[in-house]
């Protein structure tokens, strides 16, 4: 696999290469390499403290907001290392969107939330409205909010807020969407709807999902990567990993002997 030449069709859209992240006390990620091909959903699973959140945050340089971490290695996005000094993290985050554990809607209207990223680049209002509608449809929220886009976003339910966050990230048309345990704060019904949204989105986007829930990985992912204390233990098609894991640690995690 040579990610440097893999732009265009075929190769991975995003690829972490020899990524090592250290805090003062310990190594959080140790020489981790992983590819994310187009139109796929990769679930990154592992026990808590395995570094999976740090890993997903390193894929769009959000990790740099945590002070005191040193980052080595590279993350190649369509042939370009996003950690190259000439690359502005702001541009990275516009191309590689992110959804967080808890819904983090801004205290304003539904429309303004979805339009947040668009407003920054000053598009005319028709374009913004069109993109907002498209994004809300993709995230499966449109039917629920289309009659009153001016209601406060905080009046939505938790699951709706999380789908609004997904729509907000989609509205700026990234290629890659990072989902950091997006359902951990939601009830089962809301989780189901968010999972359905993910199923639909993986047709068109590269999705990376961090989850501690093996069941969720089984339901939505094409590929599973299992992390344990900063190491990538194994990676492969979802069915292979979950049904016939090669490593003992993976086996233990899947059968619930961790946590």
């Amino acid at each position: 696999m040579n990610a440097l030449t893999s732009s265009g069709n075929g190769g991975p859209v995003l690829s972490a290469q020899h990524l090592t992240i250290q805090s003062k006390q310990k190594k959080i990620l140790d020489d981790l390499s992983l590819d994310f091909p187009a139109a796929s959903l990769t679930a990154v699973v592992g026990p808590s403290g395995c570094g999976k959140t740090t890993f997903i945050r390193s894929l769009n340089r959000m990790v740099e907001l945590t002070p005191g971490l040193s980052i080595r290695g590279s993350v190649i996005y369509l042939g370009q290392d996003i950690y190259d000094p000439s690359v502005n993290p702001v541009m990275v985050r516009r191309r590689i969107g992110m959804v967080f554990q808890r819904p983090t809607v801004f205290p304003t209207t539904v429309f303004e939330n979805a339009a947040f990223g668009l407003r920054l680049v000053h598009e005319d209002i028709e374009t913004i409205e069109k993109s907002v509608e498209e994004a809300l449809q993709r995230s499966g929220l449109w039917e629920e909010v289309k009659d009153d886009l001016d209601r406060p976003a905080l009046s939505l339910s938790g699951g709706q807020q999380q789908r609004l966050c997904i729509a907000r990230a989609l509205a700026i048309k990234p290629r890659v969407l990072l989902l950091d345990e997006p359902t951990s704060a939601l009830d089962p019904a809301a989780t189901q709807r968010v999972e359905a949204t993910m199923q639909r989105l993986k047709e068109d986007f590269v999705l990376v999902l961090v989850t501690h829930n093996v069941g969720q990985a089984a339901r939505v992912s094409d590929k599973v990567a299992f992390l344990h204390s900063g190491h990538l233990i194994e990676v492969g098609p979802t069915a292979d990993i979950l049904e016939r894991p090669r490593e003992a640690l993976t086996q233990q995690f899947i059968t619930g002997r961790f946590q």
Binding site: Y77, L78, Q80, R95, K173
Partner: peptide, 20 residues
């Protein structure tokens, strides 16, 4: 939108990350 851009070939990370 995004569906079209994924299918489109030849857009490189350089083009996307160095929006001029």
């Amino acid at each position: 939108m995004a569906s079209a851009s994924v299918a489109a070939p030849a857009e490189t990370g350089k083009d996307l990350l160095f929006d001029a």
